[in-house]
Amino acid sequence: MSLYALQKMIFELNRSPLVQERFKTDLPRLLDEFDLDEEERGAVERHDIGLLYVLGVNGQLLMHLSALIGQPWADYLQAMRDGVAKHGPVRAGVYAMTTALDEKVAGL
């Protein structure tokens, strides 16, 4: 039950240029400050947007992390689909996927 901590980390990352700098240069120690389990920590370290989505990270937090790592919009959408294909449905929260894996409603 550390989804809260995972989202708190992304919340602070999105808000603070200082945390963004640490994200780039000092990620392990930054992550030490949050009570993350192994799966969550690995997902952040690998910039694994798909797994973070499946873990239940709110999309409004996740899309900014996606922007921070320079992911184009189409790649962001595909990363989430790939995450669901690999790990199964979203496990928590209110941002579940309701379209099919091959459905691209916005054309991307």
């Binding site: 989505y53 999309g59 409004q60 996740l62 899309m63 959408l77 989430m80 689909r81 669901v84 941002y95 579940a96 996927m97 309701t98 379209t99 691209k104 409603v105 916005a106 054309g107 991307l108």
Partner: peptide, 10 residues
């Protein structure tokens, strides 16, 4: 709308 999900655009 279903923002910031794979459904974005629905």
């Amino acid at each position: 709308h279903w923002p910031a999900t794979p459904d974005s655009g629905k």
